[in-house]
């Protein structure tokens, strides 16, 4: 049994789901933490899907010494590529967290499509006089992350600005490193390419956005559309240690991402 109370046309959004069905909220929770906290103030549950693009341009480590006495330069030069950002999540919302403020606590999983990072490798920069022959290099990086996301939304109007944050874990993979000869160059790929490597890092985010709520008077549910920007720091990823490598230096990438995404939320 759901009771929907619309107070007035200007403020209905704030009260729309005031007496929401707690049981339905509980069903949505894959998230025990939210359930525990939400019993006192809970009044809505969100299931959301978001998709967007990461427009960041991460640079890899430029100088790597795989063995003693040898320093190679890896100068990234792939410009203009963005990558897919997508995610699924669930959140529990606490109305009356403050006046006109809804506090949501969600758990979201985000997938960031593979990014092709490439550039020009100059092997032996300290042992050869310039101009040195070069190689092209390329590798892929991809990331997934699971974030606990608090969110504060100003809900006085249907168009509701909000800020969000998040903290959790990221799985960062760098893979498929390869080198290729540049036409006219006599530099050849190394015997031992850097292997794939996956690591887990602490991840965090901050973001701002706006959501527009479309209620359904029949179901007492609502659909929200949002657009948001988030800064997402997934920590560092690196390529693996090559066979015969004697140092602990690696090609690394700091996964700081600037994401613009939009999405849809089903509010129970």
């Amino acid at each position: 049994m759901v009771v929907v109370i619309i107070t007035n046309s200007a403020s209905w959004s704030r009260d729309l789901f005031r007496e929401n069905d707690l049981n339905k909220g509980m069903i949505t929770t894959t998230l025990g933490l939210m359930c525990l906290v939400g019993t006192a103030f809970a009044n809505s549950t969100d299931l959301n899907f978001t998709i967007g693009a990461d427009f960041s341009r991460p640079s890899n480590t430029q100088y790597v010494s795989p063995v003693s006495g040898l320093m190679n330069s890896y100068a990234e030069n792939n410009f203009g590529n963005s990558r897919l950002f997508s995610g699924l999540g669930a959140a529990y919302n606490f109305d009356h967290f403050a006046d006109f403020i809804t506090f949501g606590l969600g758990l979201s999983f985000y997938y960031m499509g593979s990014r092709d990072i490439s550039g020009v490798e100059t092997p032996g920069i300290t042992i050869l006089s310039p101009p040195q022959d070069t190689l092209n290099y390329t590798f892929l990086t991809k990331n997934t992350t699971l974030l606990l996301e608090p969110k504060l939304a100003y809900t006085v109007l249907p168009l509701q600005p909000y800020i969000l944050g998040g903290i959790g874990w990221a799985r960062n993979t760098m893979m498929n490193f390869s080198e290729s000869t540049v036409p006219g160059s006599l530099a050849a790929p190394s015997t031992y390419p850097y292997p794939d490597h996956t690591q887990t890092s602490i991840a965090y985010e901050i973001g701002v956005g706006a959501q527009y709520i479309v209620p359904s008077v029949k179901t007492n549910h609502a659909i929200l559309f949002h657009i948001e920007y988030r800064y997402l720091n997934l920590g560092q990823s690196r390529l693996g240690t090559a066979q015969a490598q004697t140092t602990n230096q690696h090609i690394t990438v700091n996964n700081t991402n600037n994401v613009v995404d939009f999405g849809i939320t089903y509010r129970l």
Partner: peptide, 25 residues
């Protein structure tokens, strides 16, 4: 990034248009 792009384009263009003139091990 723009600086890197310009540098890389110059580098790649020079390599592809000319015979080998660099230094290798």
């Amino acid at each position: 990034n723009l600086t890197k792009l310009i540098f890389s384009l110059i580098l790649l263009g020079g390599v592809s248009l000319s015979a080998h003139s660099g230094n290798t091990l």
